[in-house]
């Protein structure tokens, strides 16, 4: 069915998206927590900044990444000097780009589930001897977990589809940064690439559908779970 080159593309896409989501997960949860519970000046600005990748043209996000993480960019130079890590034109850069693009969706889903956690249950945990951190671990986190997983799966799906920021930032290098959408784009340029386009597009649609269904059912479970706080 698929050639080994095409399997390689699928594997690279999954690797890039998985790494992107795993790295973003704690950051997204922290941001979601601050946006749901925090009271601080500049909250509106932070909210807008988190959502920026959702509305700004992806090519702009890619260009900003290029400026920051490129060979001469401030963060890029530091990564190179301190850890010997280069992200430009590497799969790690593709992961970084799709992480940024997936972040707003993940934060939105997590924020909703954190807002759905019944704070009266947290108060109950406190009277039962649990400090703030223990209350978070034993009540708030487990009750918001379905939303966290839903957000992660949604972010994973978004990440699989990431195109504009990726191609701008890390280009379209076979075996390194050529993920599914970039491979489809490249195949479209080739005479006789139609069959390959159709196969890769089919895989893209199947993976996305799967992720969306999983995410939706997780979110539904979360609403049922965190809802009835009275236990009666």
């Amino acid at each position: 069915m698929l050639s080994s080159e095409e399997w390689g593309i699928v594997a690279l896409s999954l690797k890039v998206s998985l790494v992107a989501i795993l790295l973003t997960l704690p950051i997204a949860y922290g941001l979601a927590w601050q946006l749901a519970r925090g009271r601080f000046p500049g909250k509106v600005l932070l909210d807008a900044l988190v959502h920026l990748p959702l509305v700004v043209p992806p090519v702009v996000t890619g260009w900003l990444l290029l400026i920051l993480f490129g060979a001469n960019g401030p963060v890029g130079r530091w990564l190179e000097a301190a850890f010997g890590i280069t992200v430009m034109f590497r799969w790690t850069g593709a992961a970084l780009a799709s992480a940024i693009m997936a972040l707003p969706l993940m934060v939105r889903a997590m924020r909703l589930s954190i807002e759905g956690v019944d704070r009266r249950l947290e108060a109950a945990a406190r009277t039962l001897g649990a400090g703030p951190w223990q209350t978070f671990r034993s009540v708030s986190l487990p009750l918001s977990l379905p939303g966290v997983l839903a957000g992660a799966v949604l972010g994973f799906a978004r990440s699989l589809g990431e195109f504009g920021a990726t191609i701008t930032f890390v280009s379209n290098i076979p075996g390194e940064t050529r993920t599914l959408p970039l491979a489809i784009y490249a195949a479209l340029q080739l005479p006789g690439g139609d069959a390959m386009v159709a196969r890769l597009a089919g895989i893209s649609i199947a993976l996305s559908l799967l992720a969306l269904i999983l995410s939706e059912s997780l979110a539904r479970r979360g609403h049922r779970h965190a809802g009835g706080g009275d236990g009666a």
Binding site: A124, A226, G227, D230, G231
Partner: peptide, 11 residues
């Protein structure tokens, strides 16, 4: 503290 709405942990 036994709350009026009990607040048993649903999970």
């Amino acid at each position: 503290y036994v709350f009026q709405d009990l607040r048993l942990f649903p999970h």
